[in-house]
């Protein structure tokens, strides 16, 4: 049961991610990315991270992707034009990516014991302890991050306004 759910959502995530690469029009790529994020939210639920799953849907699939779609439509972005400028990326790109994937996957696969299984309800989603951690142990990072967001807002406004 759990394995079936895992393979459904993992397959959906990888399929949407490949579709993001294949699609030429940025709007289709953005929709695929929303699919990836929704599948990942389901996987977070399966890992018992209910708070993170909710935040993933609300912040990522909601706010950030709306921003992307908004910019794509504002700039009236059309189909991507294929250029053949970089010989290095064309010839060495795919083999190097495969090497990277095999390296990372082998290390991760060897590093973690096979008997550490994941199942429903083993590590129940605890939103209240996350809140307590966030406002006690991680209070300073939380405040610093809020200042970072403020800086980002001011920076975005300064960058995107009309030049006088």
């Amino acid at each position: 049961m759990y394995a079936a759910f895992f393979f459904i959502f993992a397959g959906a995530a990888v399929g949407f991610a490949i579709n993001l690469l294949i699609q030429r029009h940025p709007v289709y790529s953005a929709l695929s990315l929303i699919g990836v994020m929704a599948s990942l939210a389901s996987l977070y639920l399966m890992l018992g991270a209910e708070f993170i799953a909710a935040v993933q849907v609300i912040v990522y699939a909601g706010a950030v992707m709306v921003l992307f779609i908004f910019v794509i439509m504002l700039l009236n972005a059309g189909e991507e034009e294929r250029t053949q400028r970089s010989k290095l990326a064309r010839q060495a790109g795919a083999p190097l990516l495969l090497i990277l994937l095999s390296l990372v996957a082998t290390v991760l696969y060897k590093q973690f014991p096979r008997d550490s299984m994941v199942q429903f309800g083993d590590f129940p989603g605890q939103t209240a302890p996350i809140g307590r951690l966030l406002f006690r142990e991680f209070l300073l990072p939380f405040e610093v991050v809020s200042v970072l967001v403020l800086i980002a807002i001011v920076g975005a406004v300064v960058l995107a306004r009309k030049e006088p």
């Binding site: 759990y2 394995a3 895992f6 993992a10 995530a13 990888v14 991610a17 490949i18 993001l20 690469l21 940025p26 790529s29 953005a30 990836v36 996987l43 890992l47 992307f68 910019v71 794509i72 700039l75 972005a77 991507e80 034009e81 294929r82 250029t83 990326a89 790109g93 990516l97 990277l100 994937l101 990372v104 996957a105 991760l108 696969y109 590093q111 973690f112 096979r114 008997d115 550490s116 299984m117 994941v118 199942q119």
Partner: peptide
Amino acid sequence: MVPISYFLVLAAILFVLGVAGFLFKRNIVT
């Protein structure tokens, strides 16, 4: 039940697909 390493390998696959998009796509938004 699924071993934890499956999740990590899935994350590695998604990361490499992101790197591929970064290298091969020509549209700055993508």
